[in-house]
Design a protein around this nucleic acid. Structure first.
Lengths: 118, 118
DNA sequence: ATAATACTGAACCATATGGTTCAGTATAGA
DNA sequence: TCTATACTGAACCATATGGTTCAGTATTAT
């Protein structure tokens, strides 16, 4: 894994580790929203929501634009493709690892069998 | 999203938000390892590595077994399938959202055109 | 001009995180 | 039996997190 990805992964997975933030992302996938709207929907103070938005923005998952006194939040440029690839790769390794174990277990069983009947 | 998944997602994404822990998972996908081995590989005290392993264990990503004085760490039962599904779904929503924006932009262009020539 | 709205920043709080050291305990090896 | 190894737990530390309140500032509406 390249060093470059490390910090980026840290930030995006950390951003995803909070239910409110995952909810915000889902919400923004449905429609853009202001801080006030999001704060209301997730029952939180404006300041609290602002912090979450900052985290998402830092991770490149959300982009915001302030027009007048309203800051509108939209989905950012990152669609978590690298993270998706990491997970897919992991699942593949996991499967390979467990298939290998299965194989070993099968071999042991074979041995038992051949030990059983000479 | 069902409430049940929330805490589980919190734990697994939080576990993945650290480069050392992702490294440990990759390592364990390759071969089981003791705490000492992992601590050496990631240049950290035993106690430090033990904490990471605890986090991974809590998240169900790693399973350990102590035989004699050696605790061996192996991949856990969770292969992050739900998390993978969440990311896939998100990417899909993201694409849909941006395609929609493209469509709106196209419509605006069309309008400009028809405004241009009566 | 006044009042309401929308956000922002600082300060605070409790708890978590990622690491350490130090002092054990339990097991394995000579 | 003595010693080295492998882990474990408590305590500590600095910093981050997820939230709050309170006191602003900037915009919009009346």
């Amino acid at each position: 894994m390249v060093q470059y990805y490390q910090t980026s992964f840290d930030a995006s997975f950390a951003a995803l580790s909070d239910a409110t933030r995952r909810g915000v992302l889902e919400q923004l996938a449905y429609a853009d929203a202001s801080i006030t709207e999001l704060a209301a929907k997730f029952q939180m103070t404006l300041t609290g929501m602002k912090k979450h938005i900052s985290v998402l923005e830092q991770a490149g998952l959300v982009r915001t634009e302030k027009i007048g006194r309203v800051r509108t939040c939209k989905l950012g440029q990152r669609k978590l493709e690298q993270e998706l690839l990491w997970l897919e790769n992991y699942r593949q390794l996991w499967d390979a690892r467990f298939n290998e174990l299965d194989r070993v277990v099968q071999e042991l069983k074979q041995q038992e069998l051949s030990d059983g009947r000479p």
